[in-house]
Nucleic acid binder design. Structure first.
Lengths: 338, 338
DNA sequence: TCCTATCATGTAAACGTTTCCATGGACCCA
DNA sequence: TGGGTCCATGGAAACGTTTACATGATAGGA
C-alpha cells in the first residue's frame, strides 16, 4: 500500500509537509501543495485512517447499538442517526443487539475497543455490564429511546404517556371496555412506561387493567402472536388489544387472522410506533407515532456536544395518536385523522 | 487510557509476554498468564484495536454498502450479513447509499480508508468511480444482489427470471392481458433483469409490453406512486401492475387507494421481494420471494474465502413465486400458496 | 556429565500517521 | 545594515500494538 512516505518521495518533500497539505495546514507553499496533490493523484494514495486514529486518538466514528435492526422503528432511527452524523463529519457503526443482553455486551465492548469517539445506545435493560461500564467510563455516551435509570447519561427519547392517555380516551369513547395490552420486556424503560400509562389511562375512566389482559411480550412479532392467542382463548376475550410496538402488532394481526376473526369487528387493535405499512394493513391501524427521525438527529447532536466537551442536555419529545380504522369508526372529534 | 505497557508493569512482565497472553500464544507459562490476566482485570484494560490493526494490517471488519437501509429487503440482508460475519469473527460496518452514486462513493471510499478486510457491495449502477476502483483494487470485494458487468468480482445474487415467468403465467391464467411494470433504475442489473424477464414472459404468451405500460421507478415508494398514477390516467389503464420491488409496491398501493380503487377488482398488483407485511396488506400481495438471508450468508462466506486467499465462487440462488390474493383468485394448480 | 533442543521471556523494530521543535530564508522596520 | 518576525520546511518522536530475534534456563539424550 502506498503511504505518505511514498508521496513525500515522489513529491520531493518531507512527510511532514505532505501531512500538512493533506490536513489543510495553512503554512505550506502553493508549489508544495501542488506537487503533493499531483503525487497523491499519481500514486493513488489513500490515507490510512487506522494510523491517523492511533496518532490523533480520534476515529471520527460513533457507535450505535440498537435492539433490533429488523424493527422498522429502529431502522428509521438508524438512518436518521447516520444522516445527521455524516453532516457532522462522523461515520456510524451499527450494532444490532437483537434484544439480547449478551449481544448488547458484545457490541458495546467491540465499539469501545475500536475507540469510537462516542456511543449511542438504546439499552435493552440495565443488565448489560458493558453498557453500565460504558455509561460510567470516559467515552461519551447518550441513551436514545430507552435509558437506564440511575445513570447520569443524557437521554433522548419520546414520551408516550400523553398519547397513550389519548388512545385510552379514544377507545373508551368507542365503547370499548375490555382493554388488553401486550407489553415489552418490563426491564426496558419504554416497556414499563407504556404499560403504566395504559393502566393510568384506564384508571382515569374508572377501569382497572385485568391481570389476564396483560400479555408479556418482548417487542418481537412472535411474542405478539402468542400473547394474542392467549387473549383469544380466554373465556371472556378483550375488546381491544394494544400492542406496545409495531412488530408485536404484526404478530397480533397474524393471530387474529389465523382464527378468521375480523379487525375491528371481532377485536380491535392499536399499536405503538407508526410505520408506513400500518396505513396499508387490513384495516389500517390506529397507532401512536413517535418523531423517530428527529429523535435520532437530536441524539447525534447531543453526542457531538459531549464529544466536543460541552455538557449535553437530555431531550424528551412528545408522541401523538394517529387514529385509523382498527378500533372502530373514529370518534367525530378526535386526534389526528388519516 | 491504560495500555499493554501498564499491564506489563503491574504484572511485572514485559509487554511482549502480555501481548502473547492476550493473543493466546502457546509459549507462555501458567504463572505469567495468571498474573497478566489479574493485571488486565485490575486495571480494566481494554485492547486498542486501532493500534493492533495498524500493526497487523487486519481490522477484523468488513464493509457492507447497500442501496437503502429503509428497504426491508436490504435490512434483512444486512442482518444476515452481520450474523454470519460475527460467527466468522468479523464486525460489519454498514454504509447506506440511498440509491445515490455520490453516497455510494462516499461510503466505499470511507471504508477503504478504514482499511476494512473486505467489502460487500450492492452497486447502484456502474457509475460510481470508487466502486469500480475498489473492484479493481487489492481489497477483496464481493457483489451481492446487484453487480457490475465487466468486472471480475464474485457475485452472490438471486435469479428472478424463472419466478417472473411463473408470475406472468399466473397472471395470464387469471385472464389478465394488460400487464404493466414499474421498473427500477435500468442501470442496475436487477432493474434490467426484471423488466427483461417480464417482457420475455409476455412474449411467451404472444403478448408485447406496451411502451406506456412501462413505468420508470427508482426502487423507492414515491416513484411507485407516481408511476401508478400515470398508469391509472391512461385512457386504457392496465389490468395488472407489477412493481419490481417492495417499496414501489407500497407506493402503488397508496396511489390505488387514493383513487378509491380496489385491488384486485379494479387493478391487480404484484411485487418483487417478499416481506412479512405483504401478508397483511389489503389484500395480501402476490410476490416473488428471494432467499434474502441465505444470500447474505453466502456472500459473507465468499468474502471470507477471498480474504483468506482462496478464490471465491459466484452463486446464484433461485427466487420463487408466492401467490396471494392481489391478482385475483389463485389458479387451482399454481405455485406456492399462502 | 556435556551438548542440544525446547521453552519462557525480554528487547527493540515496525506499522503510517501527526506534530513538536529546530532551522534557514525572506521580509520588514528602524 | 542589522535585528527581529514570520513562514515554509524537515527531522524525529510518539501513538499502542505485534513479532522477529536474542537470551538464558531447563530438560533430555548420549
Amino acid at each position: 500500500m502506498v503511504g505518505i512516505k511514498d508521496v513525500a518521495e515522489t513529491a520531493g518533500l518531507s512527510v511532514a509537509t505532505v501531512s500538512r497539505v493533506l490536513n489543510g495546514h495553512p503554512s505550506v507553499s502553493d508549489g508544495a501543495r501542488e506537487r503533493v496533490l499531483a503525487a497523491t493523484e499519481a500514486l493513488g494514495y489513500r490515507p490510512n485512517v487506522v494510523a491517523r486514529s492511533l496518532r490523533t486518538d480520534r476515529t471520527g466514528t460513533i457507535g450505535l447499538v440498537i435492539s433490533d435492526v429488523l424493527n422498522p422503528y429502529f431502522t428509521e432511527l438508524a438512518r436518521a442517526v447516520e444522516e445527521e452524523a455524516r453532516t457532522l463529519g462522523y461515520s456510524v457503526i451499527i450494532g444490532n443487539a437483537d434484544e439480547r443482553a449478551d449481544l448488547e455486551d458484545h457490541h458495546v465492548r467491540g465499539l469501545l475497543e475500536r475507540r469510537i469517539d462516542g456511543l449511542l445506545i438504546s439499552p435493552a435493560d440495565g443488565r448489560s455490564p458493558m453498557t453500565l461500564e460504558a455509561a460510567a467510563g470516559p467515552t461519551p455516551v447518550v441513551f436514545v429511546d430507552r435509558w437506564i435509570p440511575g445513570t447520569d447519561v443524557p437521554v433522548v427519547r419520546s414520551d408516550g404517556r400523553g398519547a397513550i392517555a389519548d388512545l385510552v380516551d379514544h377507545l373508551h369513547a368507542l365503547g370499548h371496555r375490555g382493554l388488553a395490552i401486550i407489553t415489552g420486556p418490563t426491564a426496558t424503560t419504554t416497556g414499563r412506561e407504556r404499560v403504566d400509562a395504559f393502566r393510568a389511562g384506564l384508571a382515569a375512566h374508572g377501569l382497572t387493567l385485568r391481570e389476564e389482559y396483560v400479555g408479556r411480550g418482548d417487542f418481537q412479532a412472535e411474542s405478539g402472536r402468542r400473547a394474542t392467542e392467549r387473549f383469544l382463548d380466554l373465556p371472556e376475550p378483550p375488546d381491544v388489544v394494544f400492542a406496545t410496538d409495531n412488530l408485536m402488532a404484526l404478530g397480533a394481526l397474524d393471530a387474529i387472522g389465523a382464527r378468521g376473526l375480523r379487525v375491528p369487528d371481532d377485536v380491535a387493535l392499536a399499536a405503538f410506533d407508526d410505520i408506513p405499512w400500518f396505513s396499508h394493513t387490513d384495516p389500517p391501524i390506529t397507532t401512536i407515532a413517535q418523531p423517530t427521525a428527529e429523535l435520532g438527529r437530536v441524539a447525534v447532536r447531543a453526542l457531538a456536544d459531549l464529544i466536543a466537551g460541552s455538557p449535553a442536555t437530555s431531550t424528551v419529545l412528545p408522541a401523538h395518536l394517529v387514529v385509523r380504522r382498527s378500533c372502530g369508526e373514529p370518534d367525530p372529534e378526535g386526534a389526528t385523522r388519516e
